[in-house]
């Protein structure tokens, strides 16, 4: 039994980092366990919040043939896990002229023809730490369905593990990003309420209100901010504040 900084008593468990055995407190994330073991992250560590995709880890469990994956900042250590960080895997993103690009399947074929080498082995989906159906979005791109690919790949954090496993040598996450960018900018229906709001702002509807805020002291601003009516933590879309001066 050992005591870590938090004061919580924790059992020490063995893990193997790049083949070397370390005893680390249970309940640590892989990232903290690696630091506990004495390593320092210079790269391969970003937000520590599970969204930046910099800290992908692959690991195996004893008595099991499978390869597992996780984000080091999110995955809790297990006894006898054998792990290594794959902070980066070479996968080149191809430049293109976004303004001139036509949002259909042809641009995928032109920039990443290797997409058509996919054999549906599904290794990409199996390794994805975000549970993205990678094989399915590659399938969607082969048939030129950018909208479907954008939708399926929405949770992708660009960690690159898919590319590391691809037997067709496809840089999947860059192709998915191309699909999302083209879909978002050129195919997704425009939100009418957004255009209306932008119109109201540019027509000067909020100029007086902003002017008022600009005259306030920092103290007054803080009071207005902290004194505002807060949206309850658990509520649905129907919630409205009693008074809505800004909108």
């Amino acid at each position: 039994m050992t005591t870590v900084k938090t004061g919580i008593a924790a059992e020490l468990i063995p893990i193997y980092i790049m083949g070397k055995r370390y005893l680390v407190p249970e309940a640590l994330t892989i990232m903290k366990a690696i630091e506990y073991a004495g390593y320092q992250f210079i790269r391969g560590c970003g937000c520590r919040g599970g969204v930046c995709g910099a800290c992908s880890t692959v690991f195996r469990r004893e008595g099991d043939y499978k390869i597992y994956s996780g984000l080091a900042c999110q995955t809790v250590v297990e006894p006898n896990m054998h792990l290594a960080q794959i902070p980066f895997y070479p996968a080149l993103r191809r430049p293109y002229d976004y303004a001139a690009a036509v949002a259909d399947g042809a641009i995928v074929a032109q920039l990443y023809p290797e997409v058509f080498r996919c054999v549906a082995c599904n290794a990409c989906t199996k390794i994805c730490p975000m549970d993205v159906q990678v094989m399915d979005y590659i399938g969607a791109l082969k048939r030129g369905d950018l909208a479907l690919a954008a939708s399926i790949s929405f949770d992708c954090i660009q960690c690159g593990l898919c590319a590391s496993r691809c037997m067709a040598e496809i840089p999947q996450y860059h192709v998915a990003q191309l699909a999302r960018r083209l879909y978002g900018g050129k195919l997704a229906p425009r939100a009418e309420h957004l255009a209306a709001m932008v119109g109201r702002i540019s027509s000067g509807a909020y100029r007086a209100l902003l002017g008022e805020l600009k005259t306030m002291s920092a103290k007054q601003l803080r009071e207005v901010y902290t004194g505002r009516q807060m949206e309850p933590a658990m509520t649905d879309e129907s919630w409205r504040p009693d008074e809505n001066v800004g909108l």
């Binding site: 399947g105 042809a106 032109q110 080498r117 082969k142």
Partner: peptide
């Protein structure tokens, strides 16, 4: 050519 051919040609 990549833009013109059907996907099955590439595959």
């Amino acid at each position: 050519t990549l833009a013109a051919v059907p996907p099955i040609a590439l595959v």
